[in-house]
Computed example of a mutant assay.
Amino acid sequence: MNTKDEAQPSAKKLIIFLDCGDTIIDEGTEIRDEHDIVVQADVIPGADRMVKTLAERGYRLALVADGYAQSFKNILTQNGLYDDFETMVYSETVKAFKPSPRMFKAAVGAMDLSERDLPRIVMVGNNLGRDIKGANQMGITSIFLSWTPRYPKQPTDESEIPDYTIKEPMDLVDLAERLNERLEEADLGRMSG
């Protein structure tokens, strides 16, 4: 219940795109049905708290993930995270997989953003060849979550080198705060200059 006295978080300048598998959800816990839809899965330790904390602090969140829409609806709803995202972009509906720019452009469009906003977007993911490469190609800040043992941790070329690397989901909260602060300081500098 909100009263006028309760402080609502002010919207942050930084916008966060998140992958799902091995970024929020532990792919090793996925249970799939006969149609390859994920019907149940557990979050990575701390990932639910990360999503909730970012949402509570006023960050706009988008899910940008390869897979079936129903899979993400199932697992994010089960884990109480579905409503924390402003938008969700899936390869199934976009008809492309990361690192295709179509995935990232779809999320930008769904959030009523434009190319001018790209410098204030970060993409957080576990896959250097998809999440990091795709973000880098778009001019979006890339953040590699190196939690999973399932995917390579060494870039194969320069396009896969992340701007930042974090080890645990909750590491994103402090990093997001620092990056947001830089954006706000840059805005203040432009206004006073």
Rank of each mutant, 00 (worst) to 15 (best):
V108R: 13
I132R: 06
M111P: 12
E185D: 11
G46P: 00
V38N: 06
A47H: 00
L61Y: 00
D19L: 05
N180E: 03
M1T: 12
L175T: 08
I75C: 09
P162M: 14
A110H: 09
T3L: 12
E6I: 15
P162R: 14
L145T: 07
E34Q: 12
F144L: 05
D48M: 04
L61G: 01
D187I: 12
E181D: 10
K12Q: 13
V39H: 03
Q137I: 10
G28C: 11
P99K: 08
L14H: 00
L61H: 01
K13F: 03
L188P: 00
Y59P: 00
I31C: 02
A186R: 12
Y68A: 06
R150W: 10
R182D: 10
Q137P: 07
A62F: 05
M103Y: 02
V124A: 08
S100K: 09
R116H: 15
E6Q: 14
D187N: 11
A110E: 14
E115T: 14
L128H: 06
S10G: 07
I143D: 06
E86Y: 12
K52L: 07
D36T: 06
A135F: 10
G21W: 15
S100I: 09
G139Y: 06
E30M: 14
L81Q: 05
K167P: 00
M88L: 14
A186I: 02
E177P: 06
D22L: 03
M123I: 12
V108E: 15
L128T: 08
A41F: 03
D5M: 12
D83W: 05
R102P: 04
D42R: 09
S192H: 10
G125F: 04
F72R: 00
D66S: 10
Q40Y: 07
Q137C: 14
E92K: 05
V43K: 02
G139A: 10
A55P: 04
C20Y: 02
D22S: 03
V39D: 05
D48L: 03
M138P: 03
L175F: 07
L175N: 04
I25H: 02
I15G: 01
P162T: 13
Q78F: 02
Q154C: 11
G134N: 04
F104M: 14
S100D: 14
G46D: 00
I161L: 08
T165V: 07
N126E: 15
K12E: 04
A106E: 13
M191A: 15
G189K: 14
P155A: 15
I44K: 02
A65E: 01
Y151V: 11
G80L: 06
A135G: 11
K52N: 06
V173Q: 04
E27A: 07
I132W: 07
G21F: 10
K98I: 13
L128D: 08
D5L: 15
A7M: 11
F17M: 06
D66Q: 09
W147I: 11
Y151G: 03
I132S: 07
M138S: 02
M50H: 00
L18I: 03
K133W: 01
L76S: 05
I44A: 03
T77M: 10
D22V: 02
D84Q: 12
I161S: 01
A110G: 13
